[in-house]
Write a protein that binds this DNA or RNA. Structure first.
Lengths: 214, 214
DNA sequence: GTCTATAGCTGGATAGAC
DNA sequence: GTCTATCCAGCTATAGAC
């Protein structure tokens, strides 16, 4: 009863699930051993196959990193796109920052792969990177809801939040020494970027920040 | 004419200079190949010796990382301790942030070794770490000159500045997209942390920031 | 697609002559 | 202290039987 197309789909589905199972095992492995500790032998053992079989699904080790990146970026985009219970733009922005930090501290290896560039020869492919671009656009729109549209302020926002996350992950893993500062930091940021709440004037000072003199 | 003590000193000096020459080569190597790209063979070749000779000066590869860390931490402490041309506490703090950023962006590998923990089995020894502790104390004192003494605000400061540096190094290496935001970010920070300039009242809001709700 | 076997290389570290 | 020679473990990746 199965025609050729059905059979192809079925096999394709099997193949995809095996593919995904390997990436599952890869994430499980790097969660235990660190992102740089990924080896094909260990990965295969954890996936219940042998090392050469991995090459039936991935061309190289970097292809595995790329698939891991792609999944992480998709998870990130989906998580950040989930609706919030509140309506106030300021509350949304604050909750968004907390959600970002929670996502990052939940899996330092994932944070390292997504947001720090520490694997020697690896760069994500455009396809894997695409969800991350979408997420940045989403962050931009949430800032815009708060009247923040200047590129300079968007960059300040990303630096502010990633700085808190980075300190948290690097210097107090598992704790909340820096993540608990998110609410106050967001308040500081908004006070600075929207000093005249109900005005249409450009909210920030007109003077340009000087560069580093050297 | 050389007594035993002189001879010992001389030899000790030779030994130290060879030691330093190896660390020179190590920094030269990781500047080209990345911090994780340090191998004893390449290191020895660049230092003009052979790999086993390295073991006459260092017990292990991690001992090399430790010596590299120690030198970097000392350079950092010395650089940050240099006097500023200005007297105003606020100017000093701002210049200090610019100096920190300049130090970090000047050598991403050094930044990675000093401030991110990315080498798998490596932790700096207490002796190598000591200068970094001194530098943190110095930063604290410069914040105190600006009336900022609460631990929470010190943590916000470190997150703010390292966030800018981290974004700069990760996403615009060699540029100044984030470092040029330092002046404005410091102004934002000071406005938040010293809202009542000449008052002795505690400057920040009494409400405690809530933790991440999971 | 999955396996066994292995190539080919690079890594850190050691032995022992000089 | 410095070398040559080498060990041994680990790695990615491939060949070829089934």
């Amino acid at each position: 009863m199965t025609n050729k197309a059905e059979s192809t789909d079925w096999r394709e589905g099997r193949r995809r699930s095996a593919h995904d199972a390997i990436i599952d095992a890869a994430w499980s492995l790097v969660s235990d051993e660190g992102l740089a500790g990924l080896s094909l032998r260990d990965l295969a053992r954890r996936a219940g196959i042998t090392a050469p079989t991995v090459y039936a699904y991935f061309d190289s080790k970097n292809a595995i990193y790329d698939a891991m990146f792609g999944r992480a970026a998709t998870e990130f985009a989906e998580r950040m796109a989930e609706p919030f219970e509140c309506d106030d733009p300021r509350e949304i922005l604050t909750a968004s920052a907390r959600r970002f930090a929670h996502f990052c501290t939940n899996s330092p290896a994932r944070y390292q792969l997504l947001f720090q560039r520490t694997i020697p020869g690896f760069e994500p492919s455009p396809e894997s990177y695409a969800p991350a671009v979408r997420s940045l656009a989403l962050a931009r729109s949430r800032l815009a809801l708060n009247g923040i549209t200047e590129a300079r302020h968007v960059d300040m926002w990303t630096a502010l939040i990633t700085g808190l996350v980075d300190q948290q992950v690097s210097n107090d893993p598992g704790g909340e020494r820096w993540t608990r500062l998110i609410d106050e930091s967001v308040a500081m940021f908004l006070t600075h970027c929207q000093p005249i709440q109900a005005s249409r004037k450009r909210p920030s000072r007109p003077t340009r920040a000087k560069g580093i003199p050297t």
